[in-house]
Design a protein around this nucleic acid. Structure first.
Lengths: 199, 199
DNA sequence: ACCGCTCATTAACTCAGGTTAACTCTGACC
DNA sequence: GGTCAGAGTTAACCTGAGTTAATGAGCGGT
């Protein structure tokens, strides 16, 4: 059973017809930690499915900083929306945050199956919906939370990711420098000690 | 010709069949500046189409701050994705940033028409796609740009909005306080003066 | 004309975060 | 075992943004 099939059928909420049509286009790729899956600015009309490991999606700025847009761990799918549009290119890079293996499918194939079968159409719609939903949450966090709150929320919400990636990458996600993250962690620890002493 | 029809057909790229079915459900509402269209946390499974004016979507934090998620001006549609899911509620409030008039359609109706006609399905898919695309751009700006850069980009990208809303709202969008925005503007003006003097 | 209101600006102060650099720890490799 | 590179921590200094408060401009209502 491929990760792609499992993820897509979970989205559809039912078995997907004509899976044999996608089988030949399914590619699996294993990545070492730090290895690049795709670079920003490339044509890359694929949807990716994480089998094992963690992929980080990063925006690189002209002065060399790299900010983490999102992590995708086991059983997640991801893609660059911008790259799915005809003639489009990726707007970020995807890099393994630890050893990982991913599957990929060309989007045009999913698109075709969507036109043929309502079950596929449903999977795609749900996929876009979920994507939008996650982006909305991320946007809200970036707008309304302080750096410290973003860090706290991240380790609460994604503990299984937090313990497997470097603090450097967590800092990139929280949108602070590694030095600042270290200070934030020290501040939190200090407060916890004080609370213990008080009680 | 309603704004909703115009916007949806532009998304579909073709005329939409059975428009007479949506006509009876189309509601128009005019809002004064500062009037609320819907509040965060409400059931609100509608898609809105801006006919005239500007609507701001805001996140309110528990300590009373209001951050602007996005503006929607003439010929834009918007909705709270979270509120479209069955049993879902809005995750932000929508308020008129200047006198405005909007149309609304219940999402379930669009959903039904999507199941009946590929043209409608296409309009919805394109709608979600566009929504995701915009969210992606906003996320990137918040992650990779400084406050000053976000301000500059905003007035370059949306000059027709920038000149019609208060600096207070622009500050909320740029994610700084009005005081900080005023300083940023002063800084930019100062630099422009210096450049003129030098040349 | 006057009042009261909101908005924008400016200044003074505080503080969180960026920058740089030194230091430690760990693990990989020879 | 020795060495080297990368990750994380800590300190010192600087900058930009939040906070508070005072001031002025514009506007609607009386």
């Amino acid at each position: 059973m491929s990760a792609a099939k499992e993820i897509l059928e979970r989205l559809a909420g039912c078995p997907l017809p004509e899976w044999h049509l996608v089988e030949p286009s399914l590619r699996r790729k294993t990545l070492e930690s730090g290895e690049t899956l795709f670079l920003s600015g490339m044509a890359c009309p694929y949807v990716y499915f994480v089998e094992t490991g963690i992929i980080k999606m990063i925006y690189e700025t002209c002065d060399g900083d790299a900010w983490v847009k999102a992590f995708a761990a086991e059983d997640r799918f991801f893609t660059s929306l911008a790259a799915l549009l005809p003639g489009g290119v990726t707007s970020f890079s995807a890099v393994a945050a630890c050893p990982a293996s991913v599957e990929s499918l060309p989007y045009h194939l999913l698109d075709q199956l969507g036109d043929k079968h309502p079950q596929w159409q449903r999977a795609l719609r749900k996929g876009f919906e979920l994507y939008g939903f996650r982006k909305e949450a991320r946007e809200r966090d970036l707008l309304t939370l302080s750096a410290e709150e973003r860090y706290q929320r991240f380790i609460e919400e994604y503990p299984h990711i937090a313990e497997r990636v470097t603090d450097r990458d967590i800092a990139g996600y929280v949108r602070v420098t590694p030095v600042a993250l270290s200070r934030i962690k020290a501040r939190i620890k200090l407060r916890q000690m004080e609370e213990k002493d008080a009680s």
